[in-house]
Design a protein around this nucleic acid. Structure first.
Length: 405
RNA sequence: GGGGAGGUACCCGAGUGGCCAAAGGGGACAGACUGUAAAUCUGUUGGCGUAGCCUUCGGAGGUUCGAAUCCUCCUCUCCCCA
């Protein structure tokens, strides 16, 4: 029922950074084959940002690989750890979430996870199940397993400490909690981004302490955001969400820096390494088109994928209009001469938040109506149904009018 | 418990009585060039129908013709000593 160790390793090791330790994994695989028992593969999720993007989807896809190999995928919804807030990779204390927020986030999360995992075959645990029942004494004994020196070894803490950014005591508890999860669900392997390395290793220590066989720590690379600079994250707005509109995904993919293409191919698409080499040997723009398609293909069907790519060409290569221009409906008094201050028009149609912003866009030549660029911020325009408003290079709206009497 | 240093716009950070809607950088937005890439150049970046006015510099009071800047109290953070 299981594939050979070699075949499994090939899948498992695709696109990862580290495996601690590989020998132990081989041993676990061997045992699972002879005993016909699947391995228990753990992935912890922090229900803080309810939108999954192709960056934090990387470890989820890795979990899926294990699932496809016949192992047991286990999701830990960190509803209790979210009360702490993962200190990893951030240079400040995360806000603690309320129960209500966590509940809502979790719901959205599970919906999205279904796009990647087979949830019917996935064990899902909420870690509040065990943490909410702990006594203070239990917390103390857990905390006793960790030393301050060891905590401070962590890069992010060291940096914060040295630069005088506050570290709250409870943040030290986070990795311990994550490790404790591993004990509770008896994980054989835990998957996490490289920023999770420390926590994954703590899990090993805690399991050993309980005389369990330590889990294997598997780390996946962190994906840079579409700005090509910082780690992809929702709060930085540099992400491609797996629930984004396909055309959004494509557009965002087209705007990533060239040197990131290989990484995106490897981590965010199902393309084989050979296919990737082939794609990348073409002109960078062609390569990127294929990248955009490949990302969409993971979450949408082929027809959608092709349609989106064609539409993109029409807009940006041939400089024509998209198939569907968003409609903006304005309410105007019927029967009057329908003139509207251009600045107001931009605000009303949602292209600018304030009059000042609208003025700026106009002055800088970013606004056109029916292909005529308008640069006078004091201009009154006659509003006609069906006229085309364009702001910047990529924002369009077709005006419709709703007459009020 | 004692001593010291701080909190400035989306972020970092200068400014220590009027020339301050507040330097500089980053980011973001717009324009040029392009492949919605990178690099580069230009402009904008509190609000207001904008040569003017209104509200901002942790919070609340106060001094002053005038306060981000001086004083008092409060609050949050960092560092050192114990």
């Amino acid at each position: 029922m299981f594939k050979s160790i070699e075949k499994q390793l090939e899948v498992i090791k695709r696109g990862i950074v580290d495996l601690v330790r590989e020998e132990e994994l081989v041993e676990k695989l061997r045992r699972s084959i002879t005993t016909h028992k699947p391995l228990r593969i753990k992935l912890g999720l922090d229900p803080t940002a309810p939108d999954i993007h192709i960056g934090n989807a990387v470890p989820i896809h890795k979990l899926r690989h294990f699932q496809e190999l016949g192992h047991t995928a286990i999701l830990i919804i960190g509803d209790y750890t979210a009360l702490v807030g993962d200190p990893t990779g951030v240079n400040k204390t995360r806000p603690q979430l309320t129960h209500k927020e966590i509940k809502e986030n979790t719901k959205t999360y599970l919906n999205q996870l279904g796009k990647i995992l087979n949830l019917e075959k996935t064990e899902i645990y909420y870690n509040s199940k065990w943490f909410s029942e702990m006594k203070f004494m239990d917390v103390i004994s857990l905390a006793a397993k960790m030393t301050v020196a060891r905590m401070l070894e962590r890069d992010d803490f060291t940096k914060r400490y040295n630069s005088g950014v506050p570290i709250s005591l409870h943040e030290f508890i986070y990795p311990l909690m994550q490790g404790y999860d591993s004990i509770m669900i008896r994980s054989d392997v835990e998957i996490g981004g490289t920023d999770q390395t420390f926590s994954l290793l703590v899990g090993r220590d805690l399991q050993r302490d309980k005389h369990m066989e330590p889990q294997v720590a598997l780390t996946t690379p962190l994906l840079e955001g579409i700005d090509g600079n910082k780690k992809m994250s929702k709060s930085l707005g540099n992400y491609i969400g797996i629930c984004d509109e396909p055309k959004e995904i494509f557009g965002k993919a087209m705007s990533i820096p060239d040197n990131l293409m290989r990484k995106y191919f490897e981590l965010a698409t199902d393309a084989t390494l050979d296919e990737i080499d082939l794609y990348l040997s073409a002109h960078p723009r062609e390569a990127k088109v294929n990248l955009g398609k490949a990302i969409i293909r993971r979450y949408h069907n082929e027809e959608t994928t092709e349609r989106v790519a064609k539409e993109f060409d029409r807009i940006f290569k041939e400089r024509k209009l998209p198939d569907e221009v968003p409609q903006v409906t304005l309410s105007l008094e019927a029967g009057r001469e329908q003139k509207l201050w251009l600045v107001k028009l931009l605000v009303l149609s949602g292209f600018a938040k304030t009059n000042g912003e609208a003025r700026r866009l106009i002055t800088q030549g970013g606004v056109s109506i029916d292909d005529n660029t308008l640069t006078d911020p004091s201009l009154e325009v006659e509003v006609k149904a069906g006229m085309l408003l364009k702001v910047g290079k990529r924002r369009f709206a077709r005006i419709t009018i709703n007459n009020t009497s």
